[in-house]
């Protein structure tokens, strides 16, 4: 369960961090289009990263595969954890029962 909680906390942190680090979007200059530009000024003078869906095209198939993999992986981990917990508890019960029987026999 600690792994599950750690994953939840990590997930929340990963979700919050980009929002916290995000800059406010650049405000377009309304008068810029009205100014006359010569040949030199037409050249790019800065690179601005596009924010949002145009920036890159992520394959929907890859996202779908990732989502279904996450579901099965988490379910598998949870089942493994339950199996381990059950085994540990059964051994503990066996040991304690044996100790109680031994103390009654004395």
């Amino acid at each position: 369960m600690r792994v599950l909680i750690a994953m939840l906390v990590l997930g929340c942190t990963m979700l919050i961090t980009p929002t916290a680090l995000a800059d406010s979007p650049p405000v377009p200059d309304a008068g810029a289009s009205e100014t006359q530009e010569d040949a030199a000024e037409e050249r790019a003078t800065q690179f601005v990263g596009v924010r949002g869906p145009e920036a890159e095209s992520i394959s929907g198939g890859a996202l779908l595969l990732a989502a279904y993999s996450v579901v099965w992986a988490l379910l598998f981990l949870f089942l493994m954890r339950m199996r381990g917990l059950q085994r540990q508890t059964a051994e503990e019960l066996e040991r304690l029962s044996a100790e109680i029987r031994a103390s009654e026999g004395r």
Partner: peptide, 12 residues
């Protein structure tokens, strides 16, 4: 467990 699944599959 299912909340974690929701919070991970939703962003994808």
């Amino acid at each position: 467990l299912f909340c974690l699944i929701v919070l991970l599959t939703g962003p994808l």
